[in-house]
């Protein structure tokens, strides 16, 4: 175990942990927009900066999401300097990206009433990369990517792009997006993935074998089935989440709830 101090309190953390993880474990809140435990650190939103002191570090300002804990580390998560920088970044986000619930919440939390800045050019989203990473690292479709600029080779990230061929229409990106820049619009058996207000890809939804409601795309089912072995494949049923719950509950308990049986 490693002993470090966060906001004056000594804390135990295991080796390999990040300062953000150690802080959250202790219930100390550090704001983030681009971090999710399942996807690991990315380090682009910079909201999770903390002040670090300790061996070799004097008033260093570092992102806590990829700062590994070490013995003797002294962390301040909300010093005056950190607070001021965070407020400036929240103002930048408010001024240059579309307003969203998570941004509004951050602004209230840090006492930002309005942005001082009025940039001419705005970003289509905050470019946190959660959608890109979840699609690549968890779903395995790699349908989303950062697009650079055609006119400037230095720009690595200008917007998010969808590769229609690779998209399986699962909708995870829409679920994970902190600013609702990607949305899922289901109408009857028609699914639209809407990116920056434009329809980016379209799918026909498959109907549940029990209730007949459209629930997911064939491409998504294929992608899941492709990861199963032959034994597991035998257990695959085409069911919507609601019916699946009842179906497998019956398989375990031998009791079928009335309405599901009725639909059959």
């Amino acid at each position: 175990m490693i002993t470090l101090s966060i906001n004056g309190t000594p804390i135990q953390a295991s080796e390999g942990m990040t300062v953000l993880e150690a802080a959250r474990q202790e219930g100390i809140e550090i704001p983030t927009l681009c971090y999710l435990k399942a996807l690991g650190p990315f380090g682009v939103c910079r909201l999770c900066i903390v002040e670090a002191n300790g061996p070799g570090l004097i008033h260093a300002i570092l992102p806590s999401c990829n700062l590994k804990v070490f013995e003797g580390l002294v962390i301040t998560t909300d010093s005056a300097v950190i607070h001021e920088i965070r407020r400036t970044m929240i103002e930048l986000l408010l001024a240059s990206t579309p307003l969203s619930e998570s941004l509004r919440w951050l602004a209230i939390k840090f006492g930002v009433e309005a942005s001082r800045f009025t940039p001419d050019k705005k970003d289509p989203c905050i470019l946190c990369g959660l959608c890109v990473r979840v699609c690549r690292d968890r779903i395995g479709a790699s349908a989303l990517s950062f697009a650079g600029s055609d006119s400037n080779r230095h720009v690595v990230a200008e917007e998010i792009r969808i590769d229609k061929e690779a998209c399986i229409g699962c909708g995870t990106c829409a679920n994970i997006c902190p600013v609702q820049a990607i949305k899922l619009e289901d109408m009857e058996s028609d699914r639209k993935i809407v990116l920056y207000g434009k329809v980016a890809s379209r799918f026909e939804l498959v109907k549940c074998d029990i209730c007949g409601n459209p629930h997911t795309t064939q491409e998504f089912i294929d992608s899941v089935v492709s990861r199963l072995n032959e034994e597991q494949k035998k257990g695959v049923r085409n069911l919507c989440p609601e019916c699946a719950r009842h179906y497998y509950a019956e398989a375990m308990t031998g009791h079928f709830t009335a309405d599901v049986r009725g639909n059959r």
Binding site: G43, V44, R46, M89, L92, S96, P119, D120, H154
Partner: peptide
Amino acid sequence: QNNSCGQCIPCRTGMRVLSD
């Protein structure tokens, strides 16, 4: 700003506002 890679928020949007 022209040389910024555009990945992190302070540099991407901050430099833009600064030059404005």
